[in-house]
Design a protein around this nucleic acid. Structure first.
Lengths: 240, 240
DNA sequence: CGCCTGTTTGATCTACCTCAACTGCTGTGG
DNA sequence: CCACAGCAGTTGAGGTAGATCAAACAGGCG
């Protein structure tokens, strides 16, 4: 939870994808003054479910899982957030979901009160936030289809397809940011079923598993078809 | 699909909950000029999945299901929209989900292009839209928990709890806007399982079923506990 | 080398699905 | 006023995908 004040916005790795990407150089100077960095080790809770929200901001590096845990321990991951994604619920006092770092995370944060003031005075910030939230909403609904209607195999195929797209998989080998357990909590399955589906896809020659945290996609087209979304041609719609 | 131009904003039933609710009287006059009403019979498709979006706006009356259909016919309802809710995806050309009227619907619509221009010149419109989308996002994630982790019984109990809250159920008797089939598509179940859970809840004395489209909640507390959300005390968090 | 944690594999169980028949409305026509 | 489609919903019987319980396995690390 170290606090850093270093790092100029114009050298920021997420400069043109994050919530600040529509901001003018002048507005950026303003943000520069009030932002602060914070690092979280894997497993750290960035915000707790039901806790008051004091800060919000962008992921600079690392991966965060947004999740809800029911009282009997059942857990559902409701969002997987990557660098440039926004964390925090503006305009509400309590966090409806907890955010947990699944690998080392650096956040670029703003005090919530101040950020909300900025939303009023800085329309480009509000506009970008709106766009990002609309995209998040589409993604969440995409995942509702997956959770409600897809088979275990389709779920895993969709997950791998989504990951390879979002991690900008030039090469065919993905490094999985999530453990089997976290994957199962994202897909609404058990850890054993996820594991079985991995080996199944491997046996079918669709993927290779160099180690448990890596996946090499051998047959991208097959994977896309297994994901159960509309016809393979049209299936570029899948966001997430 | 009749077109109406009648109806002044200041007499509008959704005046202070819809996207226009933050607009000043002057801004309202502007909206008044470009808005138009449109009616849809039950079953009508308001927007089709993948179709270009030409108009968007608010539900004045009626209920709309937002859904995705997979090529083999499996269907998932990803949102249940009530009066004052906003329909349409600003800032994108194609609708990612279809919107279907489940009972007679009246929409208050704006040409998409014009609406997007207004978003720029009318900050109170954009602000309200942002707030609504943030709420929708929370709801969608709430539903992800339901779809991924809840049992059939918990799903139905959650559904009834959510409905009674959103329909402002003063009285304990709800009129269900959805058929058993639509409910099953919303809950990620089959129609038979939904039906069995209804009779189960009835046999357990939690609800009464005066007819298949009505539910009388006899034991609200029991229903809330069956819904599987956090402790009954804290469970006011459940939105949707 | 042996422990610990994450993953895989196996055997069995069960919640929910599938297939099928039945019930009860509602409307239509004789 | 009754007969009878036609549809939405319910109920039943049986099957199965995925859960659960349990054990083996593999890699990192003291």
């Amino acid at each position: 939870m170290l606090r850093h004040l270093v790092g100029r916005c114009d050298a920021c790795p997420i400069r043109n994808r994050a919530v600040c990407s529509y901001s003018t150089p002048e507005q950026l100077v303003e943000l520069d003054h009030i932002k602060f960095y914070r690092d979280y080790p894997p497993g750290a809770e960035i915000v707790g479910e039901g806790e008051p929200i004091t800060a919000l901001g962008s992921i600079v590096s690392g991966v965060v899982a947004l999740q809800r845990t029911l009282e009997d321990g059942r857990r559902q991951v409701v969002g997987l957030l990557l660098p440039s994604d926004f964390i925090g619920r503006p305009l509400r006092d309590e966090a409806p979901y907890s955010a947990v770092a699944v690998e080392p995370v650096r956040m670029c944060l703003f005090d919530k009160r101040r950020f909300e003031e900025l939303l009023v005075t800085n329309p480009s910030l509000e506009r970008k936030l709106l766009e990002m939230m609309l995209d998040e909403l589409d993604s969440a609904r995409e995942w509702m289809v997956l959770l409600g209607r897809k088979t275990a195999r389709e779920k895993l195929a969709s997950f791998l397809t989504m990951l390879s797209r979002r991690l900008g998989a030039g090469g065919a080998t993905l490094r999985l940011p999530l453990s089997r357990e976290a994957i199962s909590e994202y897909l609404g399955l058990t850890i054993e079923t996820v594991s079985r589906q991995f080996t199944q896809l491997r046996k079918d020659g669709v993927i290779e598993l160099p180690d448990s945290r890596s996946v090499r996609i051998l047959d991208r087209r097959a994977l896309a078809e297994l994901s159960g979304d509309s016809d393979p041609d049209t299936s570029d719609r899948a966001r997430a």
